[in-house]
Design a protein around this nucleic acid. Sequence first.
DNA 1: TACATAGTTCAAAGATATTTGAACTATATT
DNA 2: AATATAGTTCAAATATCTTTGAACTATGTA
Lengths: 95, 95
Amino acid sequence: MIKQTQITEESIKVFKALADPIRLEIIKYLSQLDHEVSCGEISQTMQISKTSGSYHFKILQEAGLISVRKVAREKYVILDRSTFDRHLTHFWQNL
Amino acid sequence: MIKQTQITEESIKVFKALADPIRLEIIKYLSQLDHEVSCGEISQTMQISKTSGSYHFKILQEAGLISVRKVAREKYVILDRSTFDRHLTHFWQNL
DNA sequence: TACATAGTTCAAAGATATTTGAACTATATT
DNA sequence: AATATAGTTCAAATATCTTTGAACTATGTA
C-alpha cells in the first residue's frame, strides 16, 4: 500500500518555501556544496542579517526542505532531497 | 548549446503560482481531464467567484502553467506541461 | 434593439509574508 | 567572572497577496 499524498498543507508549505529568491539561493548554495553548513555561513554568503536568516531557515525547515543538526552553539543545515523528490520530481504522481 | 535557466523571476512566478490551494486544485482538475476547459466551468467546479477565478487564471497564465485560447466570449485553458517539467521535474538541473 | 452571458478591470479591504533592531538564551573563550 | 559568538524571539513597520463587488467590454440570443 503506497501512501498517496493529497493537496495538503504540506505541499503548500513546500511551494511557499520555494517561492522566494533568497530561499532559492540558499537551496542552490546548499546543493552545490552537498554537505552540512552552518546558518551563519549561509547568512554571510547571502548577505542577509542573522534575523532574516533565522526566519528563512525556519520556513525551509518547516517545509521539510532542509534538516538541521545542532552542535553546541551552532546549527548545521543540509538539504533533505527526499522532500524535493516527493513534491517536485514526482509532482504529477502526488497531485 | 542548452539554455541554462537561472534563478529568475520565472521560477519565482512558477512557485508562487503553485503556492496556493485553489490554484493547486485547478491544476489537479485540469490534469485529470487533460483537455481544454472553459474558465467558467472551472470557477463553478472550484466554487469561487468569477472575479477570483479571473485572478487565479492570470497568475497561472503569467507563470506559464496554463495556456489559453479565446473562442468568441469564452476562454479555454489547458495545462502547459512543459513548464511543469522545466521547473519541477527538472528542478535540480535548472537551479 | 434589448437583454443575457463570459470574462476583465479597478479600488478598497483584509489577510499573509518579510524585514528590522532590540532583547534574549546558550555556549565558548579569556 | 567577564566578554564574545551563534542563533532565536518579539513586536512594529512594510510589502505583497487575495477577495470582494461594482462597473466595464465583448459576444450571443430573443
